[in-house]
Computed example of a mutant assay.
Amino acid sequence: MPRLLAMLFVLLGLFCAAALPAHAEDYDTVLDRLSRLQALAREYSASQADTPDPIELTLAYTRTGEYNTTIWQLTAGVRDAGFESCVNSSDPELASLQNMGIVVLPNGESIDFGHLLASMNLVYNGIPITGSWGGDCEELARQYYGQAGDAAGYAEAMRASFNKDDDGTLSRFSNGDLRADLDSVVVGSKVTKDTDLAEALRSYYANLTEYDRVKEFISLSFGTVDTSSTAFADAVYSALLEDSGMQLLFYMNGMWTVKGWQIKDDYAPAVRGATDLFAEYLANAVNHEKIKSETNDRLVAMGGQALADALEALGDTDAAQAALTAAEEIANNAQSTVSSGSDVVSAARENLQTNFNVKVFQLILLIAAGLAAFMLVFSMVMFVVHRKEN
């Protein structure tokens, strides 16, 4: 028994050590490792019969912990085990790119780099809101749910933690998260299969100002808008609710109802409070100017069929039908002006809307179910054996 307890303590210690966040390296070191990771991704892709996308391999490799949950696997895709094995054997130091925390940028600002790379993965896949600002607004809404009676009250309460210099202990939407959200959209929307990720980030962060960052984000995300108008906050809120990825996220977290396929009434004020606060920050950052977009497109994922397929994969046929019906009604009532801010994201989104990585995810669900069944049977057998021995 003492030996068994000792082994358990050793295993527990190893588990806890593995769960600790990786040490945040300096900016240049991180970009150097990202460049090496992408080089390995290109080599690995060329050696595979199906030639997986090196960009997806690179960004997906960095996604661990909260960025590799069910919703992330459904939308960003499942990480490639073969590539991970290749990286671990070829350049073990690159494991530091997983579970990354804060990195200080050349202009002195801090950014959650792990969040940045994970969100870029989703933006590249054609889902620009869920993994970035929309997901953080949703988390902020859940954090403050029940603490106010209307959107204005929620926005006021949320000021205590929104856009603060925090490591995530107090704030679900710190300044490091906020910068990662904006930058993932601006940089991610321009990424192609041939993009050098490290150089793209290095070029973007050279002489970057908050005004330039926010202006480009607004132009890409909401088209031509007057940020001094109250309609701007409406546009931000509408974009959040229209996004298919956000609908899936809300539904999986119990904030969305099948009836009418819409946000639940009791959660709506908290969500609106979060988006109003976000819109206020954006407007202030660009001095309440009117922002013009060359295309007047908006970065919103509109994949009704993909959303329905994802819900089917999760085993909820009622929700899948409700989502599909709602999407068809929108399509029938008006020609949507919602599209991507670049041909790259448009192409990625078309591919995404085909199946949302559902086939792969369904396989994972089957494997998980099989393992669960095996463990149940194994436990029953061990119980019977134990009873017989006694």
Rank of each mutant, 00 (worst) to 15 (best):
R3L: 13
R3W: 03
L11E: 11
A22V: 11
D28S: 15
A39K: 11
A49C: 02
D53Y: 03
I55V: 13
L57P: 01
T69E: 08
I71A: 08
L74T: 04
A76T: 07
A76K: 00
G77C: 06
C86T: 10
N88Q: 15
N88F: 14
D91G: 11
E93T: 13
L94K: 10
L97E: 05
V103L: 05
L116I: 01
L117K: 12
N121D: 11
V123I: 12
I129T: 08
T130P: 05
S132I: 06
W133I: 04
W133M: 08
G134Q: 07
D136P: 04
E138R: 13
E139Y: 09
L140D: 04
A141E: 02
Y144P: 07
Y144N: 06
G146R: 06
Q147P: 08
G149S: 12
G149H: 07
A152K: 04
Y154H: 13
A155Y: 05
E156F: 02
S161I: 15
F162E: 03
D167H: 09
R172W: 10
R172T: 12
A180K: 02
V185S: 03
V186W: 00
G188D: 00
T192G: 03
D194P: 01
D194L: 02
L208V: 11
L208Y: 02
V214P: 00
E216H: 00
F217Q: 00
S219E: 04
F222Y: 13
G223T: 01
G223R: 02
V225K: 03
S229R: 06
S229W: 04
A231L: 11
L241W: 00
M246E: 11
L248K: 03
F250H: 03
Y251M: 12
M252G: 04
N253C: 07
N253F: 04
V258C: 11
K259E: 14
K259S: 12
D266E: 13
A268Q: 09
A270L: 05
A274S: 13
A274M: 07
A274N: 06
T275L: 05
T275D: 01
F278D: 04
E280G: 11
Y281G: 01
N284M: 13
N284G: 15
V286F: 00
S293Q: 05
T295A: 06
A301V: 06
A301H: 11
M302A: 11
G304S: 01
G304L: 01
Q305Y: 07
L307S: 02
E312H: 09
T317N: 05
D318M: 04
A323W: 05
L324T: 02
A327E: 06
E329V: 09
E329N: 15
E329D: 14
N332K: 13
A334P: 03
Q335R: 15
Q335C: 14
S336Y: 07
S340G: 15
G341M: 00
V345L: 04
N351G: 07
Q353I: 12
N355R: 00
F356G: 03
L363W: 10
I364W: 07
I367S: 09
L371G: 12
L376G: 02
L376P: 02
L376C: 08
L376S: 04
S379A: 14
M382A: 14
R387I: 13
N390S: 15
